[in-house]
Simulated scan of single mutants.
Amino acid sequence: MPNIALELGKQSASFGVHSAYGEQQDVDGIRIIPVALTWSGFGGGSDESGNGGGGGGGYAVPLGAYVRRGDDLRFEPNVVSFLAVAIPFAWVCGRALSRVIRALKK
């Protein structure tokens, strides 16, 4: 029986933006190249009798896309993803700052 963890590791080498969002697209002379933050994790094992198992998972966050129009290339961010990250980050920073200020007042 093949080692499941090794097989999953070989397959995960091809994960990334391409597997999450596909190839670049050409639409009416405009080239769109997706950009994403992806990560994955896998594990596996077996017992002494040779019974094994494994599993894994992954996640992808669309950051935006590079858009090329003729000679112009620029990055256009995904505003929804930015807000989904920025709002909790701002809350945590504000809470930490308020605790630091409170500790310095004592």
Score class of each variant (00 low, 15 high):
Ser19Trp: 02
Ile32Ala: 01
Phe75Leu: 07
Ala13Thr: 11
Ser81Lys: 03
Asn78Glu: 12
Ile33Cys: 01
Val100Trp: 13
Asp71Phe: 04
Ala5Trp: 02
Thr38His: 10
Asn51Lys: 11
Gly43Ile: 04
Val85Lys: 02
Arg31Asp: 02
Tyr59Val: 12
Gly52Met: 13
Leu73Phe: 03
Ala96Tyr: 07
Val67Pro: 02
Gly50Ser: 10
Asp47Ala: 02
Cys93Gln: 06
Cys93His: 01
Gly94Cys: 09
Arg102Asn: 07
Pro2Ile: 10
Val85Gln: 09
Leu83Gly: 13
Asn51Phe: 14
Leu83Tyr: 08
Phe82Val: 14
Phe82Pro: 00
Glu7Arg: 06
Val79Pro: 00
Cys93Ser: 10
Pro2Asp: 14
Gln24Arg: 12
Lys106His: 09
Val85Arg: 06
Ser98Asp: 13
Ala5Glu: 03
Val27Pro: 00
Gly55Pro: 04
Val100Asn: 01
Asn3His: 09
Arg68Trp: 00
Leu8Met: 14
Ala86Pro: 02
Leu37Glu: 05
Ser14Thr: 11
Ala84Glu: 11
Ala5Phe: 05
Ala36Ile: 05
Arg69Phe: 06
Gly94Ala: 13
Ala20Ile: 04
Leu104Pro: 00
Met1Gln: 10
Phe89Ser: 15
Gly53Pro: 01
Asp26Ile: 12
Ala60Gly: 12
Ala96Ile: 12
Ser19Ala: 14
Ser12Val: 06
Leu8Arg: 03
Ser14Phe: 07
Arg31Thr: 15
Ser14Trp: 00
Ile101Gln: 11
Asp28Met: 12
Pro88Tyr: 05
Gly64Thr: 06
Val79His: 06
Leu37Ala: 14
Ala90Cys: 12
Val100Ala: 13
Gly16Ser: 06
Ala5Val: 05
Cys93Pro: 00
Arg74Asn: 06
Pro88Glu: 04
Ala86Ser: 13
Trp91Ile: 15
Ser81Cys: 05
Trp91Asn: 03
Met1Lys: 11
Gly58Glu: 07
Ala20Glu: 05
Pro62Val: 02
Ala36Asn: 03
Ile4Leu: 15
Trp91Phe: 15
Ile32Ser: 02
Phe82Trp: 13
